[in-house]
């Protein structure tokens, strides 16, 4: 990977984060939306503290999956056909573009996860075996989801109804991340977590390879 590659990837990530900073869509919409989802669950299932503590971790990651995917379809990550043409004509390396977009997405998702974890901790009292594992699992989930979101976003880009489709494309494929995350941090199974962590890491790496391999065909609008 040349300097040029990283320079381009960095420029793309920076642009995406700048656009998000100006529009505040993740901060003002996705995060509150996710938080209210965590608030709704006890209202629906009852406020038995034992039950809430037991389901807390699971609910946290379900909300991270379902609402985190919305960061991939934020308005500022969607490009018009004209913008795509202009970026292509800058001679951007599609792999650098994928890398930059996925990196920006991962940063936003990690922020989203941290807020959700804090909210879940307050509302449910999480039954976490080890917070150390949590610190590994959260970034892995963020990167994996961001990769899936970036690939799916590119697949659905510039089509009518495309963005609405992204959650449907991402969610079933994100199941190994959901299971990996919840199983790694669940207390009843302290000990087997390393295997789940290996699975998650493998998924993240495989998605990276897929993203790199499909970057060129997906960049081409025609």
């Amino acid at each position: 990977m040349s300097d040029r590659f990283w320079q381009q990837a960095f420029a793309v990530a920076r642009r995406d984060l700048d656009r998000e900073r100006r529009s505040g869509e993740v901060f003002w919409v996705t995060i509150p939306f996710g938080a209210i989802a965590l608030l709704l669950v006890p209202l629906a299932v009852g406020i038995n503290q034992d039950v809430l503590t037991r389901i807390g971790t699971g609910m946290l990651f379900v909300v991270v999956m379902l609402f985190g995917v919305l960061t991939a379809v934020r308005r500022t990550s969607i490009e018009t056909p004209e913008q795509r043409d202009a970026i292509a004509l800058l001679g951007v390396d599609p792999v650098a573009e994928f890398t930059g977009k996925a990196a920006a997405g991962a940063v936003l998702l990690l922020g989203f996860e941290l807020v959700m974890a804090a909210v879940a901790l307050v509302l449910y009292g999480l039954d976490i075996g080890s917070w150390g594992w949590m610190l590994v699992v959260l970034p892995l989930t963020a990167v994996g989801l961001a990769e899936l979101g970036t690939i799916s976003g590119a697949i659905a880009a510039s089509t009518d109804g495309g963005p609405a489709l992204v959650p449907l494309l991402v969610t079933p494929l994100a199941i190994p991340l959901l299971l990996g995350a919840t199983q790694t941090v669940s207390v009843e199974r302290n000990g087997g977590n390393l295997a789940w962590l290996v699975l998650m890491t493998t998924v993240v790496l495989v998605l990276a390879i897929i993203g790199v391999a499909t970057a060129r065909p997906l960049q081409e609008t025609r």
């Binding site: 381009q8 656009r19 100006r22 529009s23 004209e82 913008q83 800058l90």
Partner: peptide
């Protein structure tokens, strides 16, 4: 270079930031 019907710029970025993005990509 192509200048099309509708300007291909990012509405959330400033005029300068749009150009700086292009500058960073091409180096």
């Amino acid at each position: 270079g192509l200048i099309g019907h509708s300007p291909a710029l990012f509405p959330e970025l400033s005029l300068l930031a749009n150009l700086e993005f292009s500058a960073r990509i091409v180096g």
